[in-house]
Nucleic acid binder design. Sequence first.
DNA 1: ATGAAAGCGCTAACAT
DNA 2: ATGTTAGCGCTTTCAT
Lengths: 340, 340
Amino acid sequence: MKKLTIKDIANHFSVSISTVSKALNDSYEISKSTKQKIQEYAKVHNYKPNFNALSLKKRKTKTIGVIIPNMLNYFFAQVFKGVEKEANKNGYKVITCISNESFDKEVETIEMLSNGSIDGFLLSIAEETELKNNFTHLTKTIEHALPIVMFDRVAQGVDCDKVITNDSEGAVNAVAHLAKTGCKHIAFISTQSHLKSGQERELGYIEGLKKEKMQVNPNLVIHILEEDYKQYERILLPYFEENKIDSVITTDESSAIAAMKIVQSKGHHVPKDFSVISFSNGIIARHSSPKLTTVSQHGEIMGETATKMLIDKIEKKQGYEEIKTKIIKTDLVFRNSTKI
Amino acid sequence: MKKLTIKDIANHFSVSISTVSKALNDSYEISKSTKQKIQEYAKVHNYKPNFNALSLKKRKTKTIGVIIPNMLNYFFAQVFKGVEKEANKNGYKVITCISNESFDKEVETIEMLSNGSIDGFLLSIAEETELKNNFTHLTKTIEHALPIVMFDRVAQGVDCDKVITNDSEGAVNAVAHLAKTGCKHIAFISTQSHLKSGQERELGYIEGLKKEKMQVNPNLVIHILEEDYKQYERILLPYFEENKIDSVITTDESSAIAAMKIVQSKGHHVPKDFSVISFSNGIIARHSSPKLTTVSQHGEIMGETATKMLIDKIEKKQGYEEIKTKIIKTDLVFRNSTKI
DNA sequence: ATGAAAGCGCTAACAT
DNA sequence: ATGTTAGCGCTTTCAT
């Protein structure tokens, strides 16, 4: 069964294709009766204007491209959920690509989609791109009039809209809560010291300590590598043996769990003897014993926000020419790894 | 900066557009020298053929549509990873939609994409669709010559390629391992008794018991609702108090964790006194104490397989006319919630 | 070896 | 109120 075109309808009623086109678009030029019969016929036969013809003509595709570093990351999956929802709400499709944290894949993807496939990009830069600090592929596409909105992992130097979370504030709040509940020796474990957001969290930790008039002990700032996730406990153990630590803030869930297991294995009780707060997306945090108190990022809202910004830019809504950065706040979600 | 078109290139060299087109496609009709200078110029100026013009002309888009029930589900995220990878490898883009387990969203999505946007569908049906047992939206799109490949959650009645996992076999293997390691009273906890795959797992559990010449005790087959996930422990507790249970197979990770917490809170040791095997995608399983032994599904391979099947069908590769169902086997991944 | 022209499905300016 | 025509960017058949 071939797809129905405007031409077929025109033939069927022995009218011109422009009459049909106008009728379907409810033009005032066409008589009520013709409009009715044509619209009726189109509906019954399930006519749908050809997407590519429309896009070619109108020079816009009503689709956006999203580049996500890693969909297995729950946070990014949440962001994507928000993107898809907001895009659909506005009648946009979304082409999704995973960069796998690879610079090359990111560049290739942008190349692939920079041929009129999409009206704009949403992206969170790959780890490798962040390290390389090479953003020419991004500046180039912006020059070519394809708008970009970056989310979460953002390239400061690139001139475009951005949506980020307030990582440092999240850490400050975490420190404040620990201090309030009597913790004196707060450690910080980072698996992301190579990333901007990881550095922000660390800065927030320091700032938080200062605010609480607590001393910053460099021995309590622990940097480990994400790729070593299978040996977190082994790697962390010495830190806990050589220092007096009564609480920890971690940049990720896995190291929070590892820290907790270490102190538990020494017979300590969480949260009575030891408190834990983790930056987190929540999935693992809700299944540990005890459940983790977290600095929670609102991925879905971030996705919605970024998408809205991009669509506003594409459709040149009021104020679209300003370049904005929006900040999504974090929430401290109290579970059972901290005292009240 | 406007995008370069074939016309611009033609003007620049004062040749016709068809010459340019042929030159860019390396046609034998064009002289070596002209080809060279045109290709060179195109490369330098980063010419890219307009996607919509090409699609319109060629009547294919090199893009596939994927409908996923829920991207926050780690398994589906894994499938998606495989899809994206395989699609890209073959030069396809992927438009991704989330049905959110909703029948209506699924239908709308299919409507939205059935206008020449894509060359074929990949989908896992929404829970609601599975319950409604209404697949006319699917049969209709197949009739309209848009191929569909279903994965994981599959509509048996619909005539199309499918990729599924062997759920029942996974359960049989789980029972076998528990039996081998001395378990006598194996319970089964299902949060998915309304879904085909949940039923298959239960069937496999029964079959496994019979193979091991063990008695089937209906009291040990426990059905709970996924929406009650916050109260699994409360709901499950009575079963553990009223029955002699020394091991459990669960259809999901959360209830496995809940079961484990219950027995641990009674002072029992996992796996010494109690064994647990969970159907699982792995993320939570690797963070519990002890880590869970799982029946692991290979989501990424499933995604790759389904995508390859769809592309073969779209491109009418050898044998594309047969309708096939491929089965991805499960693996029993031994961690620490079972004995050896 | 190169070019003219038709056409993919649609919109819209311009007749009639 | 309806029709003709050009054109979106490209491929391809058919001249030349």
